[in-house]
């Protein structure tokens, strides 16, 4: 184990801003893509179903 305590862990030897700034933004970006992918699929299904009902009439 590299860390004496949690505050030691979060401090990252004084580089906390840079290390956690990297990890946080990466995490947020990936979560955002996952949300967009889910929405994309749902929206497409909804839109195609609507178009289909339209075409049938």
């Amino acid at each position: 184990m590299q860390w004496a305590s949690w505050s030691d862990f979060w401090a990252m030897g004084g580089y906390g801003l840079y290390v956690w700034g990297s990890y946080l933004v990466t995490f947020v970006a990936i979560v955002l893509e996952i949300i967009l992918l889910r929405h994309g699929r749902k929206d497409t299904l909804k839109r195609l179903r609507r178009m289909r009902r339209w075409e049938e009439q």
């Binding site: 990252m12 030897g13 004084g14 580089y15 840079y18 290390v19 990297s22 990890y23 990466t26």
Partner: peptide, 9 residues
Amino acid sequence: GEAYRVIFI
């Protein structure tokens, strides 16, 4: 130091 840990992403 610890700054290198950015490498993992």
